[in-house]
Amino acid sequence: MYLIWDGAKDLAGNVLHLRTRFVTNKRLDGQVVVITGANTGIGRETALQLTSLGAKVIMGCRDLNRAGSAADYIKANNKNAVLSVIQLDLSSLESVREFAKKVSETESRIDILINNAGIAGIPEQRTTDGFEMHFGTNHLGHFLLTLLLLPLLRSAPKARVVSVSSSFYLVGKIHFDNINLSDGAYTNWKAYNQSKLANVLFSRELAKRLGANSTISTYSLHPGVIKTDIGRNYRPYVVKGVYNMIGRLLFLTPRMGAQTSLYCALEDSIENKSGFYYQDCKRFELSPIAMDDTVAERLWDLSVDLVNLEEHLNLPSS
């Protein structure tokens, strides 16, 4: 019921143009930002805005052709943009490790990591490593990437990890007894919701394990209901013309959808408020399932095992 009410308010805010636009005078000259899935949608718009503030942006993208087009778009809108494109397939742990290695070879620090990439609504599939595709891509790929890049994040004076989740975490459940939703348990919504809850739990648990005195702050967020490519797998259920009309009326543009990502990456007032969840550039209270420390710790330990994380990269529970 809460999800329905939350979604109704979300759409009403879109229609009535009540969404918050984040404004800052901050400069990011000399800072390094890594954004996954920066080739389209809110990832591309986030990259554009951060380059406009002077940051060097590393775009981690699976499709290099689309990434190249996105880089051209950003440079057309900001001729001074400093960009780097490195291939990153979050559904392959080998690709995640290779990406982190390449970034580590060229950069001495990372100031902002935005775990933006995501998939939704696909038919049942497995990642290269055999995991359910939503869980493997949306959660495990970003889990491993963040921990591999942690040394570079620690090298920055202050760093932030921003994870793009969804309000659908509210109806998510971590299916520990069947994490890959095998043997007929799979539905695309169940898989997506599980992965988005995992994003929130990971962000909270990361903040907890880093500790109150860490120079790294973590945030998760719901970007809003946005007309982007992530919804392409749901379009067969809706007549194309109707979908486009609904999209124009009810959905945010990618630029407006990027505002909460920018807020979490840049807002000074939340610098030391780590582990919280944001929506429309405001902090929102999490549901009980997302506040369950036992579930968060269990998910962390499971993720460590599934990605075969090196012992020295793991963070002990506080």
Rank of each mutant, 00 (worst) to 15 (best):
S92W: 12
E297D: 08
E94L: 12
V33F: 08
E285G: 01
I270E: 02
Q194Y: 10
L201M: 13
L150E: 07
I4M: 00
G224E: 07
G184L: 08
A212Q: 11
D301I: 03
F176R: 01
A159M: 02
A67D: 00
E271W: 01
L18P: 12
V161L: 13
R255M: 15
E45V: 09
A159Y: 00
V239T: 12
L152D: 15
G211K: 09
L144D: 05
H134T: 11
L249W: 09
S217N: 05
G68Q: 09
L18N: 10
R232P: 03
L11T: 11
K102Q: 07
L145W: 12
C61Y: 11
L11W: 03
S108W: 15
R66C: 08
F135C: 10
L153G: 02
R232E: 15
V82E: 10
R160V: 03
A120C: 10
K173E: 00
Y243A: 11
S287R: 12
T253G: 00
V304G: 06
L170Y: 15
T218K: 04
A159T: 02
T146K: 04
L18H: 08
D129C: 04
F143E: 00
V239K: 10
H142L: 00
L28H: 07
L149H: 11
K173V: 10
F143P: 00
G172V: 00
L313N: 08
N314A: 06
G30N: 10
P236C: 13
G247Q: 12
Y234C: 11
D72G: 13
G130H: 06
L197Y: 08
G130N: 05
R209Y: 14
A120T: 04
L90M: 11
I230T: 01
A12T: 12
K9E: 15
G60S: 03
Y169G: 15
A67N: 14
S84W: 13
S303G: 01
T36V: 10
A12D: 11
N314L: 04
V242M: 05
K273D: 13
V34T: 11
F99V: 09
Y234M: 14
D183N: 15
A207N: 02
M1Y: 11
K173R: 07
S92F: 03
R154E: 10
N188T: 09
S287F: 07
L53E: 02
L53R: 02
V164T: 12
L53C: 03
I174R: 08
L113V: 02
E124K: 14
F284P: 07
T260L: 10
T51L: 07
T106Q: 15
E205F: 13
D111L: 02
N138R: 10
N314V: 08
L28R: 10
V239G: 06
Y263P: 12
L83N: 05
L18G: 15
Y237N: 14
A67T: 13
K79P: 08
L302A: 00
F99N: 04
Y237L: 15
Y234A: 14
R232L: 11
L262K: 05
A12S: 13
A8V: 01
L113I: 02
L309F: 11
Y73E: 06
I226V: 05
A265R: 00
F131L: 10
L306H: 07
F131Y: 03
E98I: 14
L266Q: 11
L210W: 13
M59I: 05
E124V: 14
I230W: 06
R19H: 09
L252I: 07
S69F: 07
V82Q: 06
M256E: 03
L11Y: 01
K101L: 15
S182K: 03
F143I: 01
A159D: 01
I174H: 07
S163V: 14
V57Q: 08
